[in-house]
């Protein structure tokens, strides 16, 4: 990718804006700047909040153990047989919680896909990525990135498989949809 990444552009714009605010604040004693388009007076927040959550996966740990072995795990209620993916540790269908862990086939077909061209702030460091939904042989749908850069090479209904991969640059295990060449 030759052009500036979305992250670089975003950070550059933010840095310029902050320098602008700082210069005005030093001159006037107030963080009030004119809107670039309309000139309307804007107070620039002097407080900043960063959000980073911790989310319990205690009851679905076997899913992550599965990823470490290259497997995609789901739960199945041993009473009513309902299969859950993403895995659930409680079965709302029969309201019992006798779940067993099963391995999914990782083979299926592509139901639909899109390219994320304009990315959220926390994904701005990636190149454009394709997200798809695959339906596995056992009828379970899986949303994931598709290992392909060009959407015209993909077709609704094409055969795909699921592979466990390490997401970079963060370096954590997740799963991906991989087109299967016939």
């Amino acid at each position: 990718m030759s052009q500036k990444s979305q992250k670089e552009a975003m950070e550059e714009a933010l840095k310029q804006f902050e320098q602008f605010v700082e210069s005005i604040k030093q001159a006037t004693g107030l963080p009030i700047v004119p809107d670039q388009k309309t000139g309307a007076a804007l107070w620039v927040d002097q407080r900043e909040l960063r959000l980073k959550y911790t989310i319990s996966v205690e009851r679905i740990k076997p899913f992550y153990d599965g990823l470490m072995d290259g497997k995609l795990m789901a739960t199945k209620c041993s009473k009513c047989g309902t299969v859950y993916f993403p895995p659930q540790s409680y079965c709302p269908t029969c309201r019992k919680s006798e779940m067993q862990w099963i391995e999914l086939s990782r083979e299926g077909e592509l139901l639909t896909f899109t390219v994320i061209n304009i990315k959220p702030a926390s994904f701005a460091h990636y190149d454009d990525y394709i997200v798809g939904i695959a339906r596995l042989k056992e009828g379970i749908n899986v949303t994931a990135w598709v290992r392909e850069k060009d959407p015209t090479k993909l077709k609704v209904g094409m055969k795909v498989r699921i592979e466990v991969v390490k997401r970079q640059p963060e370096g954590y295990l997740t799963y991906e949809i991989v087109p299967v060449s016939e």
């Binding site: 639909t112 896909f113 899109t114 994320i116 997200v131 949303t143 077709k155 609704v156």
Partner: peptide, 26 residues
């Protein structure tokens, strides 16, 4: 958030684009 956004960074146009792709194909 946890199963869709955390790993796969979908956006709102992205979600509707999944419907658009399927509809246009069908």
């Amino acid at each position: 958030y946890f199963w869709e956004f955390q790993n796969f960074g979908l956006t709102f146009p992205g979600y509707y684009a999944l419907y658009a792709t399927a509809y246009m194909h069908k």
